[in-house]
Amino acid sequence: MGRSALHQNIISVRGLRTQFGSHVVHDHLDLDVRRGEVIGIVGGSGTGKSVLLKAITGLLTPAAGQIEVFGVDLTALPDDERRQQERRWGVLFQDGALFSSLTVAQNIQVPQREHLKLPQELMDELAAIKIRMVGLPADAGAKFPSELSGGMRKRSGLARALSLDPEIVFLDEPTAGLDPIGAAAFDQLIKKLQQTLGLTVFMVTHDLDSLYAICDRIAVLAEKRVIVVGTMDDMMAHDHPWIREYFHGPRSRAAQHSLGKA
């Protein structure tokens, strides 16, 4: 605990610059994520939402800037300490990114098997609990990813992300490709898990319904940086043209309306 307890911010990004060749994706990007909140990252296509996620989780080395997670700069750590920290978060990739040669239960057990020495019986029990917690049916554990629907793959991916009881969960477009009912159910699942497990959720999304339903704060990516962070009300009041168009467009009004009624 110690150091990270002092920091309200579980993730803090300062002056981030990422680029591919001469194409600069982020420049002087600052972002703070508070412990225990659900933050939604929005932005037009190509503004580098997923790139930001990759930079924070260390899948991509930034050209400049500092990224602290749990109050430590991960790039400065030696490899094994870095791995220790990496166990404290889970990532759900867009299509689940399940290992296709393993069953769902085995997928969930991969991080447990690799990082902890647990008896097989306990791993089976824990996998069963995770499978049920993410709302998968009882027979899903023994199935292979190719036998699952898109929604079930996402749930399985979430179960694997939660395998080591992480403190932060990164979600890359969790509701993309789901039907509206499935998407709403997935939103509720994330909210419920976040509340029971006390998770911090970092969510890249395009889905206005998700933003309205479960995000505590929203960060808008544009002009290579985070132009504004705030609650939904802040977004509605902001006068940046892109934000106005995004949050006052017809689809946004529809989402707001349906949530108001519900």
């Binding site: 069953t103 089976d124 996998a127 069963a128 609990i129 917690m133 023994a142 199935k143």
Partner: peptide, 21 residues
């Protein structure tokens, strides 16, 4: 919060297939 977590685990304690037959 621990109470919520315990209840949640209890609620999800149901038989579940782990290994393919």
């Amino acid at each position: 919060s621990h109470r919520i977590l315990l209840d949640e685990v209890a609620r999800n304690d149901e038989p579940c297939d782990i290994e393919p037959p």
